[in-house]
């Protein structure tokens, strides 16, 4: 079946079986491989994308259900000149990355958090990313990267 949606502000039309997941469409058809496949059970959050601004696990979300909606992936976070967003830059500056496989999903979840709550405290940040597994960092430097943005925006 044909589904029309917007991906990173670009209109796309895909022909895919009705059971195809958004993750498969993004990775295999649109070759947007920044969104990661890690569990395909909606458990780890590595495949998180924004759907009309709301974070969803693209591995258990049917592409057909995204018809007419706007999808943002990690590839859509940079500036037009390729510059990093403040959150991306803060991840780099605060060692919030180790292997980096969970990073795209975390960035999407945190973008949604900061959109809804521009000044989250530590507990709010931890709760927001409790659905994003990171095996490398132990999370502290990720939380600090988000806190640093708050401090910069307040100063």
């Amino acid at each position: 079946m044909r589904t029309k949606l917007t991906v990173n502000t670009r209109d796309v039309s895909v022909e895919a079986p009705p059971t195809e997941t958004l993750l498969t469409t993004l990775r295999d058809r649109l070759q947007l491989t920044g969104t990661k496949e890690a569990c395909v059970e909606g458990e780890c959050g590595a495949c998180t994308v924004l759907l009309d601004g709301r974070p969803v696990d693209s591995c258990i979300y049917a592409t057909a259900a995204a018809a007419g909606l706007s999808v943002t992936t990690v590839e859509g976070l940079c500036g037009l000149d390729g510059s990093l967003s403040p959150l991306q830059q803060s991840f780099v500056d605060h060692f919030a990355i180790q292997c980096g496989f969970c990073t795209p999903g975390l960035l999407m979840t945190l973008n949604a958090l900061l959109e809804a709550n521009p000044d989250p405290d530590r507990e709010e940040i931890e709760n927001a990313i409790a659905g994003n597994l990171c095996r490398c960092t132990g999370y502290t430097q990720i939380v600090e990267a988000v806190e640093a943005i708050n401090q910069e925006s307040l100063s």
Binding site: G34, V74, E75, L77, Q88, F91, V92, I97, G100, P104
Partner: peptide, 9 residues
Amino acid sequence: DGAAKTTGK
């Protein structure tokens, strides 16, 4: 690898 890993590249 910070930029590559935060941009999905």
